[in-house]
Amino acid sequence: MFVSDEDLMMKCRKGDTGAFELLVRRHQNPLINYIHRFINDYHRAEDLSQETFLRVFKSAGRYKPTASFKSWLYTIATNLCRNEVRNRSRRNTCFFEDLVEEGEDVYHTEIMRDTRYLPDVLLEKKEQRQMIRKALAQLPENQRVALTLVTYQDLRYEEVAEILGCSVGAVKALIHRARQKMKKLLIKAGIGVEKIDE
């Protein structure tokens, strides 16, 4: 029987750590990927994901079942990521993966471990990933967050609006602008219209 996130959260409020473990199992993968796309540092992304889950557990008492758990989780994660990026820029430091040369691989991806792929496909995937990473990094923060949440986390516009603290109309505009810009950036990076149109 499938138990919804909200029900699990209500069990957590009563101190059920088993329910919380199930929540972590459900959301750990997408959350780490979201944070990784935001801050571009795998190890720091793991730390921040742990911190996010810990904050969720600590503030379980304040959780209201009327709010979607997913949007609550990603609001906490987004705030943590924003603080991290702000602190980094204040300290004038770069994320580890921003310093890595194009040829090096610092990712622990599922595709890399999958033996079904041939080396040239792997290389192509790697290049694609790097291009997307660079293009995403060039987007303004709000556009990047909105696009990542919709594209990779499959969140509804309403939930994104809740996370960003803006209207659904504003999210619609952000997503569209981000997609247009991504299209231009990818074409500029050598992924031509033909390749995108493939």
Binding site: N29, Y107, H108, E110, Q128, R129, R179, M182, K183, I191
Partner: peptide
Amino acid sequence: TDNFLRGAGDVEV
């Protein structure tokens, strides 16, 4: 563009 972005692959926990 959207499909291309979705094909980026995920990092593993």
